[in-house]
Design a protein around this nucleic acid. Structure first.
Lengths: 334, 334
DNA sequence: TTGAAAGCGCTAACAG
DNA sequence: CTGTTAGCGCTTTCAA
């Protein structure tokens, strides 16, 4: 049996209240008893039972994190940031991988409810009504990261997707490209799909290149799908000399396709990615991309949730973090 | 306030024991009351408090997972497998990323202790005495995945590293390579470092190629380090025509270095990796590698821990899973 | 400064 | 079949 507060009390020859006090308000206990209690705690390797504490405090000091795909390096960064923030703020973290499955997501929310997590961070996926209502129904405070909600009043932290996409495409245009295509996220099951497309369109229009607006194919988060989408894109628009990919993984799929077709990158076609995953510096060629402050996004999300938990609201509802263009080798020189 | 069992009882007009019964032994309650209780539960979105339950059962139905590096795709696979097994077995999962930091690892074990996790899976890292003693001191049952312990009696699941390395090197030799180098894990802070080196040596000796035994450089888990190690390896042994890398990430680093030196892969040098990460099929060239059943390793580790938790011991202490050679494009044709 | 005792939400005897 | 009651381990009044 794990030792309880009673065992410590007995060993130290004091009452359980005294033991409790040395843990929560040490200076209300005289030195002599305090040190005896500390010794006993040490000797028994006593650790207060989190269940008993939770029952009283009605807090678990645990946060939940819902991510769509743990095999996507993007989320590894978010997790690291959030985990570091949790350590700083005194929370434990419960990470759940939903695979973008509704049943599974809902069931994880149940688990969070049952384990009484203090709050949850919901990453990237779209906040479907079912999710929102379940979270609200369970009275679980939550914030969104790499996502936002137009329908509901929910705090969020993300990058300015429209602006970032605009910057990427503008960069391509300034490199001299006139025939530019895009591999995007489907608009109906992603939150950054529409704004990134909008940024693509805005840059094109600004430079009188609107004829490219339709040169877009969509993929569903993974490499293989982007490979396939590139195939469709280039079959239909062989004149393309540049592609804006809304994810680094898409850029890799696109480059892979181009390579199989013996089309040189960046010699014949420039490719720009999005995210700046750790992998993007390892790929051949190294990816030119729009960097998101991934780690910071996770860190900030945890802080924001903490703010919500402790003050009942957040100072800024829809927070944007800075993105940055990183020029490497997959785009041609000026 | 979240509703308690009392609220449900009141609304359904029964005692709290009856409510408890419909949750734990439904058929001992008459249909009429049972359905009234179910309705009340539904209406209030009642979810039993895990703290109160934990206090009684002395079980949290939560497992802990300690991984060294969440940004390594290898662990993403382990996590998925373990998470699926947890769903099947009725556990929640608490994942902690140690960054291979001792302080941090020890502190996570404290957290696990405090949250009363039922058991923990410890991944890949070496089981230092401090870890072992703390875990045992806290009376937390645990198993090792992608690791094992020679010193202690601890259950583990992994691949046969020596045999897998042997197979990789033998494959290279059978391709006709005579000058073979290796990029390995440091022997003092990794568990698979020594056996993989041993497999390298055995294959070499078996084919009378022991002169290559010293052509080894070491790196510390990441791409950049492998890039640097390759630089050292090829500066010292420019005659090399093949390299056995003990991780796919090392293979990518090596290929990246070779590419920067304008050495063709597989034209001039064959490179074989280890793990078969999802990335290895996305890289250019696609990696020839030794596949580990990563997902299954995670799944099996959770099952094994469950076995330990429920029966008090495991049928097989040191379990090995099958590896497989995957031939793709980074090795030359025969 | 300290101890006794109530109670957090739930389960499991024990009566009825 | 159902209700009453005694804890599970801890914190927190309330007295002493």
């Amino acid at each position: 049996m794990k030792p309880t507060i009673r065992d410590v009390a007995k060993m130290a020859g004091v009452s359980i209240s005294t033991v409790s006090r040395v843990m929560n308000a040490p200076d209300t206990v005289v030195e002599s008893k305090r040190s005896r209690v500390m010794e006993a705690i040490e000797a028994l390797k006593y650790q207060p039972n989190a269940f008993a504490r939770g029952l009283i405090y009605k807090k678990s000091f645990t946060l939940g994190l819902l991510i769509p795909d743990i095999e996507n390096l993007y989320f590894a960064g978010v997790i690291r940031g959030m985990q570091d923030a949790c350590i700083k703020l005194g929370y434990s973290l419960m990470i759940c991988n939903t695979d973008r499955d509704k049943e599974r997501t809902l069931s994880y929310i149940d688990t969070f409810h049952e384990k009484q997590v203090d709050g949850v961070v919901f990453a990237s996926d779209v906040l479907y009504t079912e999710y929102y209502e379940k979270l609200v129904g369970c009275r679980i405070p939550f914030v969104l990261v790499s996502s936002h909600s137009d329908e509901y009043e929910v705090a969020s932290v993300e990058v300015d997707d429209e602006k970032a996409a605009y910057d990427a495409v503008k960069f391509l245009i300034e490199l001299g490209h006139q025939e530019i295509g895009m591999i995007g996220f489907n608009h109906d099951n992603s939150v950054s799909g529409p704004p990134r497309f909008a940024g693509f369109v805005r840059a094109l229009k600004e430079f009188g290149l609107e004829r490219n607006v339709e040169k877009v194919k969509y993929a569903n988060h993974r490499f293989e799908q982007a490979y396939q989408a590139s195939h469709e894109l280039f079959s239909e628009y062989p004149e393309l000399t540049a592609v804006f990919c809304v994810a680094d993984e898409f850029a890799m799929g696109t480059i892979s396709y181009l390579k199989d077709r013996n089309i040189l990158v960046p010699g014949q076609v420039s490719v720009i990615g999005f995210d700046n995953l750790r992998m993007s510096g390892m790929f051949i060629p190294k990816l030119t991309t729009i960097a998101q402050p991934i780690y910071q996004l996770g860190y900030r999300a945890a802080e924001k949730l903490h703010e919500l938990l402790t003050t009942g609201s957040v100072a800024v509802m829809k927070e944007k973090m800075e993105h940055k263009l990183i020029v490497r080798e997959s785009s041609r020189e000026k």
